[in-house]
Write a protein that binds this DNA or RNA. Structure first.
Length: 822
DNA sequence: TATTGATTGTTTTTT
DNA sequence: ACAATCAATA
């Protein structure tokens, strides 16, 4: 019998063994799709259906790409794994475009603009055209939509009456031209411009379409039309396109994702074999049944129903809280109780619809001293100081980058104000040159030139001083531009920014090392922490959270760590993996690091230690936890007020069925994250946008069957109570009529502290949060190793510690959030 | 050029 | 509530 049959169930096996032709794998939540993808890739190689370089596997997140790459590597070995393309859509696009840049009139060192750069550029485009720059956001959202749809300006036709559309289109054309002359691309371009390239140059398309004999796509339900076009083109020669996804988990419609891509796949690719993965290996029967009862109300979906061989499990629970503070307090005490019963905090998660909801939850957890981490976007790399430094570096590498030049020409302030900049821009436009080239335009007034020339000299000095090393380059910029000096003058906040830049240097240092295939430094004077068969490497990307991972080194390859089934909690080393993928495309570690800065956030950073996770429902996709709390199950919160036509600019009073279907999918995604325990909470009233609101319980809880759920009784009691109009203050709140069984008022709460135990629960040893690190503690810093705290300044994770590290490092001031308890 | 007061719009944000 | 952004001001 095929040994594969031991690790795969029949439909999984069918998907893995499918040979040529289009393949659609409808993979329900927790049905083992990554396993299928990895085994399928291994199968293709083993059966000689493809050689490694002929395989292209695309995902949406860096995390997914890293995980896939790693798991494939474990199956097929490092040398094959390195020769295939396993990347995010955007990384693959960037890689391809760097190779073919000339064909689009770009150079290999084009810059990748992020949202902020994009908005700035759109503003300039709009104001150059004489439009109000205040409308830039609206234009940008149209531009993004066009790009998601795969439409470049020339291909867009608008009806005469669409006046705002016409304006946006003009801005789009101008914006696109500005990017082109800046030798820059935005995220959307990383896809659309590949499509453009393929349409324009059939020879190049043929080259890639021939090469990629087998293409595999993860999370296909999230593809936008541009990505879909790209896949169509790339698979046009061999037709071996395998897509994996779950239409029920499509939650990015608002970003241009098109569920129809997956729903109509079989129709668009004749001869498609469809495989359904419906056996769930994650959740209990009740959780699956409840999730199904929510999702089955959606009309257009690929019929499938998850089942599990595991038991029914506990009932879901609904908790009705008084307000958001009460909601937080109850959840916090439940977390505490769960933990006392043996569930690690790291196995618990709290989800919310909108980031704004995290505040009250965090307050409650902090009050209870429950260790947590908030999973957010790319917060670290989005800091202004990091982006400033990146702009300097990009300008050094790519002088045509007008956006980067404008960003830093007066940062730190060097007397180059708006008027000077305007004159420079006018000159550049007049002569059709880049800003950089115009810096010494002899026609500029001498007072303007006298300001610009020193700036030019500064950049030239940097450019000649910048070496291959990313870390050295960053240090040179920080010190050489006066940026550091400026921050040092700014006190408290400047200090912190400087610390952040030091972290950036640390990340770059690690990246350099990985690039050069050197062993990562272990500064720790004592034996490296957990004795694994390999040394532990700080992940440069995730080091802000002090995470450590196992280094696995392939011969002659870059370091990359493994995400293994046997090592839960260890995540792949993204930067090293990215370094490996792009090494032949980028020439130096500096260029590689810049690429990483653009394409990889620190979002994937998993906080070390035993902490509960807080995140939006969107951020939860792809994750799983033993116990999950979904919060804010109230109409206008979840489903969001926008889907109900109640909030925002599109507020029409009418529900938007498409939006509501997406909210439903979001609910489905959230519920299917839970392995064993699922709790849904709502608050009777909640302050939202500054006013106190009494929201109806969400339809998603009202729809739950009592067979599956406990605590529904509270909903009915709630319905019997009269509703009050909006009440603005706590005083009003306290003077509401009292009903038997009502929780105490706010004021009472302060006195009696209903939910808070009289004495604070003692901190558990298992929670190595940074909060209790003080003088004398031994701490571990990802860059500096292990040291002893000698001083503390401030409170919370943002406080600074003076730490005495080992020899060669000495006394350093570091942010508490960057260290872990040693 | 930096500071201020008013105004604005607040879902989600893989890259 | 609240932050972020912008126009007017010193």
């Amino acid at each position: 019998m095929d040994p594969l049959a031991k690790v795969l169930n029949p439909p999984q096996l069918e998907a893995v063994r499918h040979g040529e032709g289009p393949l659609l794998i409808l993979a329900g939540a927790g049905s083992g799709k990554t396993r299928v993808l990895t085994h399928r890739i291994a199968h293709l190689l083993r059966e000689g259906l493809a050689r490694a370089p002929e395989i292209l596997a695309v995902t949406f997140t860096n995390k997914a790409a890293g995980e896939l790459r790693e798991r494939v590597r474990k199956l097929v070995g490092a040398s094959d794994a390195e020769r295939m393309w396993v990347a995010t859509f955007h990384a693959a696009g960037a890689r391809l475009l760097r190779r073919e840049a000339e064909a689009l009139g770009l150079t290999r060192s084009f810059a990748i603009y992020d949202d902020g750069d994009q908005l700035a550029e759109v503003k300039r485009a709009a104001s150059d055209l004489g439009f109000d720059a205040g409308t830039a956001k609206a234009h940008l959202s149209r531009i993004d939509k066009w790009k998601n749809a795969g439409l470049l300006p020339a291909e867009i036709e608008l009806p005469e009456y669409d006046v705002p559309g016409k304006t946006a289109l003009k801005v789009y054309a101008k914006y696109q031209a500005a990017l082109q002359s800046s030798n820059a691309l935005d995220f959307g371009d990383l896809i659309v411009r590949v499509v453009e390239l393929f349409k324009k140059r059939d020879d190049i398309l043929q080259n890639y379409a021939q090469r990629f004999r087998y293409i595999l796509v993860d999370e296909f339900q999230d593809t936008n039309p541009a990505q879909y076009q790209l896949l169509r083109l790339l698979s046009s020669v061999h037709g071996n396109l395998c897509v994996v996804g779950d239409d029920d988990q499509s939650i990015y419609r608002w970003r241009g994702a098109e569920v129809d891509n997956i729903l109509d796949f079989a129709r668009h690719f004749p001869g498609t074999r469809t495989v359904r993965l419906e056996q769930n290996y994650r959740s209990t029967g009740r959780i699956l049944a409840a999730a199904h009862s929510i999702i089955e109300k959606n009309e257009r979906r690929a019929e499938k129903k998850l089942w599990t061989a595991a038991g029914d499990g506990d009932k879901l629970r609904v908790v009705v809280a008084e307000d958001e503070r009460d909601e937080g307090a109850r959840i916090a005490s439940e977390l505490y109780a769960q933990n006392a019963r043996g569930t690690a905090y790291s196995e618990m998660a709290i989800f919310y619809r909108a980031n704004a909801q995290s505040r009250s939850l965090e307050d409650a957890l902090r009050a209870r001293r429950i260790p947590y981490r908030v999973v957010r976007g790319r917060s670290f790399y989005d800091r202004a100081e990091v982006k400033d430094i990146a702009a300097y570096l990009r300008l050094c590498v790519n002088p045509r980058a007008d956006g980067d030049l404008l960003r830093i020409i007066n940062t730190p302030p060097r007397g180059i104000g708006d008027t000077t900049v305007d004159k420079l821009r006018a000159s550049a436009i007049r002569q059709g040159l880049s800003l950089w080239e115009s810096l010494e335009d002899p026609e500029l007034p001498s007072n303007v030139r006298s300001k610009l020339l020193p700036f030019k000299a500064l950049i030239e000095k940097l450019r000649s001083g910048v070496s291959a090393s990313a870390a050295d380059a960053i240090e040179l910029v920080i010190e050489g531009t006066g940026y550091a000096d400026r921050l040092r003058l700014e006190g408290e906040e400047g200090e912190e920014r400087l610390e952040n830049l030091m972290e950036l240097v640390g990340a770059a240092r690690e990246f350099d090392r990985a690039w050069n295939g050197e062993d990562p430094v272990t500064t720790a004077p004592e034996p490296a922490p957990p004795p694994k068969e390999r040394p532990l490497v700080p992940n440069p990307l995730t080091q802000t959270h002090g995470q450590y991972m196992r280094a696995v080194r392939a011969p002659g390859a870059l370091g990359s760590a493994s995400l293994t089934d046997d090592a839960p909690g260890l995540k792949p080393d993204m930067s090293a993996a990215l370094a490996a993928a792009d090494r032949d495309e980028a020439d130096t570690p500096l260029l590689g690091f810049l690429e990483q800065l653009a394409l990889v956030g620190d979002a994937d950073a998993e906080g070390g230690g035993d902490r509960a996770a807080l995140m939006t429902l969107h951020a939860a996709k792809g994750l799983e936890f033993d116990a999950v709390w979904m919060t804010g199950l109230e109409e206008r919160v979840f489903p969001s007020g926008r889907a109900l036509g109640q909030t925002g600019p599109t507020a029409s009073g009418a529900e938007d069925p498409a939006e509501l279907a997406e909210e439903r999918r979001l609910c489905y995604v959230g519920m299917t994250r839970a392995r064993k325990k699922l709790t849904l909470t709502l608050a009777r009233c909640r302050s939202l946008f500054g006013e106190l609101r009494f929201n109806q319980p969400s339809r998603f809880v009202r729809e739950l069957s009592p067979d599956l759920t406990e605590g529904l009784g509270a909903l009915e009691r709630l319905a019997e109570r009269p509703q009050w109009g909006a009440q603005k203050t706590d005083d009003d709140f306290d003077q509401r009529p009292r009903y038997p069984g009502d929780p105490p008022t706010m004021r009472n709460k302060m006195r009696f502290s209903r939910d808070e135990p009289a004495s604070k629960p003692p901190m558990k040893e298992a929670a190595p949060g940074v909060d209790r690190v003080g003088s004398g503690s031994r701490v571990r810093h990802p860059t500096f190793g292990v040291g002893t705290v000698e001083g503390v300044d401030g409170v919370g994770p943002a406080r600074k510690l003076e730490v005495r590290f080992g020899p060669g490092v000495g006394l350093k001031r570091v942010l508490a959030r960057f260290v872990d308890k040693a």
